[in-house]
Measured scan of single mutants.
Amino acid sequence: MATGGRRGAAAAPLLVAVAALLLGAAGHLYPGEVCPGMDIRNNLTRLHELENCSVIEGHLQILLMFKTRPEDFRDLSFPKLIMITDYLLLFRVYGLESLKDLFPNLTVIRGSRLFFNYALVIFEMVHLKELGLYNLMNITRGSVRIEKNNELCYLATIDWSRILDSVEDNYIVLNKDDNEECGDICPGTAKGKTNCPATVINGQFVERCWTHSHCQKVCPTICKSHGCTAEGLCCHSECLGNCSQPDDPTKCVACRNFYLDGRCVETCPPPYYHFQDWRCVNFSFCQDLHHKCKNSRRQGCHQYVIHNNKCIPECPSGYTMNSSNLLCTPCLGPCPKVCHLLEGEKTIDSVTSAQELRGCTVINGSLIINIRGGNNLAAELEANLGLIEEISGYLKIRRSYALVSLSFFRKLRLIRGETLEIGNYSFYALDNQNLRQLWDWSKHNLTITQGKLFFHYNPKLCLSEIHKMEEVSGTKGRQERNDIALKTNGDQASCENELLKFSYIRTSFDKI
């Protein structure tokens, strides 16, 4: 039985969820670079991206490699990797027998973001014989899940209580170790020597080791999670996991709180800001991140802002960003909400898709409305799209047979046209069989910064309504002859009103 693990408890099935942008060198404390989270699957090609990484700022997932063999891993080693800020997950990587050479110096898994409450997941690794993470000293947050690894031993010899604050939620089941077939031998045991430290858990006094050649490092209890030197002297209180010299914040392997210019500090002093819960960055760093993602459509890219001495992905609820200094300031009234469309555009074809934009005031991208039916549609669209004030790209209304009016965009005031449909149009209306009105132009103002209007096959939309939009939106004169079809717009509506004058002759039985 794995020490510190839980057996036999019912657990939810383990679901495996399925960018080499360097964020800056980590400095003297770390020998390499800070790398983003990685999802490495199918083959070993991307694994080489770990070569210079000291910190993975995010998670590391290595999974679904069915053609790899043990010899493929023999020359692979990433000794610079010290810390993973989120979680480490391995799933069905064939041929991998140990992690001792792959990650010989991995010391800390912070667990800032977890995989279903777990910071370390080893699942269905069919050839893994031992973990071998002999320098792993601290899992700051989260638990361990090690399950269905039929060859995995050296679990009962690990004292997880020396690595985690609590072992109650560890789930370590259905491994070879369960069948008591392992016969784990710690260093020196074969020669009758006791080389590794022994600890007591559940009444068992057991030597602690990761492999037959690597003991588990056990520091004096007084050192807590700070770690200790090879001689057993406690590291500085700002260290986490390990250090090369005692009581020196510049000799830590990793930091308990924050890293700044080669030393570990309790908090980031001005003019620095907390970033990702582990390091200090200056304003320029946060500003660069903001600008890199301002026009990016890459998933996970955030326009970072500053709030409460932190550089964070977005302002919290009730705050909006001051564009001059990136500071989050309290909103006066309802907060603006910028919604970034991942692929640059979004099609609204149902109430469900409209709900995804609920509360958005600025759309960074283009909207395509293609709704053919739905219950209580006008009210639903207004509830979900009615706060949109600005669209950076274009607005396209296409084959939306259920629409009679666009009044559900009740606050839309600006279409920038930074991206144009077919390279020309910022407003595009095609084949809307029941569209009769755009907006009530006596109450609604709309500016279209650039781009043209396109109207074709809107049989109940009168040309007068379209011409009014040209005047109000500032697009009059931009359109070419064929942009607004004269014969297919309003051709099934009563669009022309003329005053009919009647004269009559009164007659009676005795007068003409």
Results as ranks from 00 to 15, higher is better:
283 F>M: 09
44 L>A: 09
135 N>P: 04
160 W>L: 05
204 Q>Y: 12
230 A>M: 06
148 K>S: 10
105 N>Y: 10
196 C>S: 05
258 F>Q: 03
254 A>I: 03
50 L>K: 02
251 K>M: 15
165 D>N: 04
79 P>K: 03
271 P>N: 08
74 R>Y: 14
61 Q>E: 14
202 N>H: 03
194 T>W: 15
77 S>D: 07
85 T>Q: 15
102 L>H: 01
229 T>N: 13
280 C>E: 00
177 D>G: 13
270 P>M: 09
277 D>T: 05
135 N>F: 03
214 H>I: 08
77 S>H: 08
225 S>T: 12
68 T>M: 07
243 C>P: 00
219 C>S: 02
315 C>Q: 01
130 E>G: 09
28 H>S: 09
39 D>M: 08
181 E>A: 12
303 Q>K: 04
139 I>N: 00
212 H>F: 06
106 L>A: 00
301 C>S: 11
184 D>K: 12
202 N>C: 07
131 L>N: 02
145 R>H: 04
239 C>H: 00
134 Y>R: 05
278 W>P: 01
194 T>A: 13
234 C>R: 00
95 G>N: 08
89 L>V: 01
160 W>C: 00
234 C>S: 01
50 L>H: 02
139 I>H: 00
280 C>F: 01
168 E>I: 08
130 E>A: 14
55 V>M: 05
227 G>Y: 06
67 K>N: 08
321 M>E: 02
68 T>R: 08
91 F>V: 00
95 G>T: 02
257 N>E: 06
173 V>T: 01
328 C>N: 00
267 T>L: 04
53 C>K: 00
125 M>T: 07
220 P>Q: 11
29 L>I: 15
68 T>V: 05
33 E>I: 06
233 L>S: 12
189 T>K: 14
193 K>S: 04
213 S>K: 13
314 E>K: 07
82 I>P: 00
241 G>H: 03
224 K>C: 05
137 M>P: 01
203 G>I: 05
182 C>R: 01
188 G>P: 05
126 V>T: 07
216 Q>G: 01
229 T>S: 10
305 V>F: 10
170 N>V: 12
300 G>I: 10
317 S>W: 00
159 D>M: 02
319 Y>Q: 14
169 D>I: 06
32 G>P: 02
161 S>K: 03
244 S>M: 14
244 S>F: 15
102 L>F: 15
87 Y>N: 01
190 A>D: 14
224 K>V: 12
93 V>H: 05
36 P>D: 04
268 C>S: 00
150 N>S: 08
323 S>G: 14
162 R>N: 15
59 H>G: 09
273 Y>E: 14
117 N>Y: 08
272 Y>W: 07
328 C>D: 00
31 P>N: 15
207 E>K: 14
89 L>N: 01
207 E>Y: 09
196 C>V: 03
64 L>M: 04
112 S>D: 15
249 P>I: 06
66 F>Y: 01
94 Y>N: 10
45 T>K: 10
235 C>Q: 00
267 T>I: 15
170 N>L: 08
202 N>W: 08
303 Q>E: 09
154 Y>A: 03
280 C>M: 00
66 F>N: 01
269 P>E: 10
320 T>C: 08
193 K>M: 12
258 F>T: 04
218 V>S: 04
324 S>F: 12
331 C>L: 03
36 P>K: 09
119 A>R: 00
31 P>M: 11
159 D>G: 04
296 S>T: 14
322 N>S: 07
271 P>T: 12
334 P>H: 09
294 K>P: 14
258 F>K: 15
85 T>V: 09
228 C>E: 13
313 P>Q: 12
164 L>F: 03
200 V>I: 09
162 R>P: 10
225 S>F: 12
275 F>M: 09
78 F>E: 00
71 E>W: 13
144 V>W: 00
231 E>G: 13
